[in-house]
Design a protein around this nucleic acid. Sequence first.
DNA 1: AATGAAAGTGATAATCATTCCTATTTTATT
DNA 2: AATAAAATAGGAATGATTATCACTTTCATT
Lengths: 121, 121
Amino acid sequence: MSRQKEVILGVLRAQRFHPTADEILLRARQRMPALALGTVYRNLKALCEEKKVRRIPMEDAPDRYDGFVEPHDHLVCTVCGKVYDVPPLQSKEALEAKLATRVDGYELKVYFTCPKCQAKN
Amino acid sequence: MSRQKEVILGVLRAQRFHPTADEILLRARQRMPALALGTVYRNLKALCEEKKVRRIPMEDAPDRYDGFVEPHDHLVCTVCGKVYDVPPLQSKEALEAKLATRVDGYELKVYFTCPKCQAKN
DNA sequence: AATGAAAGTGATAATCATTCCTATTTTATT
DNA sequence: AATAAAATAGGAATGATTATCACTTTCATT
């Protein structure tokens, strides 16, 4: 594991948040100023394949990345875009039973308006 | 509703499928050869806002569009990308109960390997 | 029928997240 | 230290989607 990869994973594990590749770059550069965005993307992809990191594909915004990979789903604020973790809302087994097929996985995003954004109206 | 918009909606309602903007353009041009891709995107966006069409955001491929808007979810083949309709697998109410929050909606995609693609191995 | 305002269009340029390319640097190995 | 292999930095390329804008179409009103 290269030093860059370690730093990137370190950023993602330092706190429970869901940054974009850009935000990861910014933070990682505090420790490694020459780090390139391409390197961030390349290592994020590798880390996802190694199941150390999870990508959260966003519909109308840059994808987010998650350094915590125990099963959980995401609650997304439609106003500010912030992402919250929630316990798993589905299970592969339940889906397989309902659909009567083998299932490879699922991607569930629940949309809501976070308390902060609600307060602003 | 402009003639272009009608044609685009017509394409989407003609059969139960989930084409990309490009595929919609191709089919619509059979009836309206001068139609522009920008016009397709513009009208798809409008139709989505009017709740006549539903966008299916894809993670690593162009988005799909769905002319049938009764509640249902999608089963996506990880190999060929084909999208199948399935009955709703969640309900806003159940999610609200589980999460103890108001919920605006959800987006669930279940991944599997379709029979055709399974057969090829 | 002529008008004028509003809405919609086609063509093309711009955007922007992500990927690709390549010369260079780092790392591991002998 | 020499060499090979792997990874990087930096920048250019890609490709889906949006924005722009001059021009047309629509349509209510005269």
